[in-house]
Design a protein around this nucleic acid. Structure first.
Lengths: 116, 116
DNA sequence: TAAACATATGAACATATGTTCATATATCAA
DNA sequence: TTGATATATGAACATATGTTCATATGTTTA
């Protein structure tokens, strides 16, 4: 990779930059995360849960979507460790996994609401 | 929407929560953003640009992808105001639009590299 | 002006994904 | 145990999306 070919601002150390990229594994994992967040249903679920833990039925009623759609969405979010579950009797109570998720959402929200 | 139906932790004010959700417009815009970030190619482009501005050819060489693929990806990122362009002679120099983008990426990176 | 270079973009195809439908499992109430 | 409630999940279909191919536009050099 010969950097000198590019008469282009700040491109003098292209090789270094490539080496500083996140690992393939990290890139892939991040894509999976963003992929989960790219769906209105899952995004709404997360914004609901940011306000406090909820069982599946409550999410269903809040968003007016079918039980199956919600459950599939929650499975996706769960598998990526964006949300977690605890059982309370016959209820499955979902909650936001950690603070990164919260910050991810607020960064994005600020971006779109500011640009708007 | 009758909250009292749900014998579920912290679901006493479901209606309020729904009202506190971001607007449909915001949700949709956020989905578009996350959708852009859900692709390895665009994610790599952004991580490259986080290290400094680059022209299209440089990105192409750095990632070893076709000119067309890179250009389509850049168009997507551009339309969402995640990156911006300035013309320098015959080169189109791309750069990260603002700090929200930077924070979005680092939040996600921390999440996956920590969980790992 | 002609040739080479840098970038953009529409069409098309193959793959990925969200929702619905049907059904399964588990818990609680009677 | 029976019925009702809460949740999970596989299959299938319709839609969305990334890449490639072909081609167009604009800029620089000779």
């Amino acid at each position: 990779m010969d950097d000198s070919e590019h008469i282009c601002a700040d491109s003098t150390c292209l090789g270094d930059r490539v080496r500083h990229l996140p690992s393939e594994d990290s890139i892939y994992s991040m894509c999976r995360i963003f992929n989960a967040l790219q769906c209105t249903t899952r995004l709404k679920i997360l914004f609901l849960l940011l306000q406090g833990d909820l069982c599946v039925k409550a999410i269903e009623d809040a968003l007016g979507l079918t039980q199956s759609a919600i459950s599939h969405s929650l499975k996706n979010l769960r598998q990526l460790d964006l949300v977690r579950v605890r059982k309370e009797g016959r209820f499955a109570v979902y909650y936001i996994a950690d603070q990164h998720v919260e910050l991810l959402m607020s960064m994005c929200r600020e971006h779109v609401e500011e640009v708007k």
